[in-house]
């Protein structure tokens, strides 16, 4: 029980820091510290240790600050550019989607009319329509893949 009180007082002193070694400490701590020599010594030692810790000077170099500021600015610029590109891609996708939604029915009717005019069976002109419809996306994918392969081979995406 006695040991618990010492521990409690010391833990209070340790967590309060230098501020705790003044009049601001609670009365039960003050009373105990006045009566108990070992806790008084602990409080003094803790106070000295905390002052010692606070006295340690350590500063950042100006070059580190400048380099960090430059890196942060550069990264902010890259993020902004990335965001702009992303916005452009989103806008393009939305536009393409809208165009596809409006033109697909017209294209379907066009193929149907051509199929009837050429007297071919429905599956034939439907396959033709599907190929025509998917051709731009296929071409874009092939181009993007080729570009990616080219950039990888030239080491531009490395590191």
């Amino acid at each position: 029980m006695k040991r618990d009180v010492h521990e409690q007082v010391r833990e209070w002193i340790a967590s309060a820091g230098a501020a705790g070694l003044t009049d601001s400490q609670p009365s039960w701590v003050q009373a105990h510290v006045q009566d108990c020599e070992s806790c008084r010594n602990y409080a003094e030692a803790a106070g000295q240790l905390i002052r010692c810790l606070r006295s340690a000077p350590l500063a950042a170099d100006l070059s580190l600050v400048r380099t960090t500021q430059m890196r942060v600015r550069l990264h902010a610029q890259q993020l902004r550019q990335k965001q702009e590109r992303l916005w452009l891609i989103c806008a393009s996708c939305a536009l393409v989607g809208l165009m596809a939604a409006t033109t697909t029915p017209l294209l379907w009717r066009g193929f149907q009319w051509m199929g009837e005019w050429a007297r071919v069976s429905s599956p034939v002109w439907q396959v033709g329509f599907a190929l025509f419809w998917i051709a731009p996306a296929l071409a874009a994918s092939v181009l993007l893949l080729a570009r990616g392969t080219y950039l990888t081979n030239n080491g531009r995406w490395q590191g």
Binding site: A59, A60, L64, V65, T68, Q69, V72, R73, A76
Partner: peptide, 23 residues
């Protein structure tokens, strides 16, 4: 807003504290 001026100011303000903590 990713305001670069604000970030510059914050880096300067917290330079010593942050570095000391990390060290």
């Amino acid at each position: 807003r990713r305001d670069p001026d604000l970030l510059d100011r914050l880096i300067e303000q917290y330079q010593h504290r942050l570095l000391r903590f990390l060290v």
